[in-house]
Design a protein around this nucleic acid. Sequence first.
DNA 1: AACTCGGGGTA
DNA 2: TACCCAGAGTT
Length: 356
Amino acid sequence: MTINIDKKQFQQDLIGWFLAEKRDLPWRRTADPYQIWISEIMLQQTRVDTVIPYYKRFVEKFPTLHDLAKADEQVLLKEWEGLGYYSRARNLQAGVKEVAENYGGIVPDNRKEFSSLKGVGPYTAGAVLSIAYGIPEHAVDGNVMRVLSRILLIEEDIAKPKTRKIFEEAVTEIISHDDPSSFNQGLMELGALICTPTSPKCLLCPVREHCTAFHEGKQQDLPIKTKAKKNKAVQYAMVAVKSVDSVLMEQRPSAGLLANMWQFPMLELAKEVLPFEIEEELSESFSGRVDGVEKITSFKHVFSHLTWNVDGYIAKGENLKIPAHMKWVTAAELDLLPIAGPVQKMKTALQLRGDV
DNA sequence: AACTCGGGGTA
DNA sequence: TACCCAGAGTT
């Protein structure tokens, strides 16, 4: 594509603004490629304000690459609990382990090697390489596509995968080779603070004079993005089966939604059911006796692509034959298991009743 | 290319 | 509600 801006002047205006106005974020206080890597993984599809406390706890718990490489996965997932997209945590550890074993513990400083690691895609590779190593690599995220779609008046649909390549080529063309880190971060900072999705603050924009959309009054119409399809709903029963001093928990499969996270045993339901039907279903699946089933709560949990409608039950179980992915835990042990949002809602309901 | 994968802030 | 967020992996 043809780029009709004054590159040098644009770089100077953008970087000058960034250096003067950048937010004081915890990952901007380190030069450690490992810690910058962590921040970029956490920031995927996740807001800065959400990440900050997780990042601080995480680097305190796993200060070096080797600390994370040797960490227990349950402990790792517990640190990630509530942040979402849990495969990020497991992929990050897989990548870190590979660096420890195959790269002498040194994070690779080139795109080919670094982006071969688990969880490191085109954006994260460019972000870490430019920020940690000062290498002029593109780092195109949602902010960058929005900002550049306006500045360069790019009207391709940013929801389409191949559109990202257009922006990568554009960044490669205009990136500063003197300060690639500030250039890439400047584009993202601009997207976060000034060139926002709705109501961009053009009158405060340091690169307004370079912006084609602003000159043509089209900043509100960009970027072009087609709509995502909406999600589906699924009905579940979530059952806290209690014995004398423990409750039954099950671990989810190692792949798919909430992989390896724990939950109270769940039954997918075709329709609304009565408590005695829950009782029959559970007694049969455990070849034992489950009784006293009582509904204690009901809630909805919305994921990005599906919705869980959950009825929460409590029950008593004796002499159950439980499968390998389940175990009985005490209240103290329960607090150590990584659980996702819907399970946390159930746990809270149980705690309010004094049941766990 | 389309789908999967969380959770929360915001208009 | 619907959209968006410092995206990547799988199919």
